[in-house]
């Protein structure tokens, strides 16, 4: 875990880092950050508690506890990662642990949009490709350079394309993943919508 926390800001076009593989389908947000850690009024202390219960059960052999993974920043996961609760605490905990990008077979929807909202790009690949990368990463430490503009990833001996929605990619490249400013620009349109909606006066 990195000692100093610098959140992503602005345009994101390149992410370089060591990969950490976490094997399993349907890993839910209760497992990423158990509910007892949601008793907080900020996100600051979440990094150390990521996967707390899974890590305790595995007594030191969980990927997030292995020494060789401590400075990793690209998480490789399988299918339906982040299902369940909408808690943004889950991607916030991963971010604070040091994760800056996630590559997986598929993601749960709210988790995916929470990742965008805090500046963590999520990429998809086929089941087979994910398994190959996870296997490779077990035998050799994989250091990837992700180029968001070209949706590609390269390492010493690998070179492959990553899938990401075009609209999402644009948001990272332009910095609009941090949506508040963009939404605020249309303030007068919002005011007009407020007046137009048939139910505002009776609800």
């Amino acid at each position: 875990m990195k000692s100093e926390f610098n959140p992503p800001i602005g345009k994101i076009s390149q992410i370089n880092g060591k990969c950490i593989s976490l094997i399993g389908n349907d890993i839910d947000t209760d497992r990423i950050i158990p509910a007892r850690f949601l008793k907080c009024i900020d996100f600051d202390s979440l990094g150390k508690s990521v996967f707390e219960d899974d890590r305790k059960t595995l007594k030191g052999s969980h990927p997030f506890d292995l020494k060789e993974n401590q400075d990793s920043s690209i998480l490789i996961v399988n299918s339906n990662f982040g299902c369940g609760s909408s808690r943004e605490h889950a991607p916030q905990a991963l971010l604070r642990w040091g994760i800056r990008a996630i590559i997986g077979e598929s993601f749960a929807e709210i988790f995916y949009s929470n990742c965008i909202a805090i500046g963590i790009p999520c990429f998809t690949l086929t089941k087979k490709s994910i398994q190959n990368i996870q296997e490779y990463n077990i035998s050799k430490n994989l250091f990837l350079e992700i180029d968001l503009k070209n949706s590609s990833a390269i390492s010493e001996d690998l070179n492959f394309n990553l899938d990401i929605k075009e609209s999402t990619k644009k948001m990272f490249l332009s910095g609009e993943w941090d949506a508040t400013a963009t939404l605020l620009e249309n303030s007068s349109l919002v005011d007009r919508k407020f007046k137009e909606l048939p139910y505002i006066k009776f609800s």
């Binding site: 996100f43 943004e88 644009k170 948001m171 963009t182 349109l189 919508k193 909606l197």
Partner: peptide, 27 residues
């Protein structure tokens, strides 16, 4: 409820009713 089409391709949607509780609102 669509307010505008955003440059990235998503829509800006007006939220008619916003419900909040103690866990996900303080931050």
């Amino acid at each position: 409820h669509k307010v505008s089409s955003l440059p990235g391709g998503s829509d800006q949607i007006f939220i008619g009713l916003h419900l909040i509780h103690e866990v996900t609102s303080p931050q």
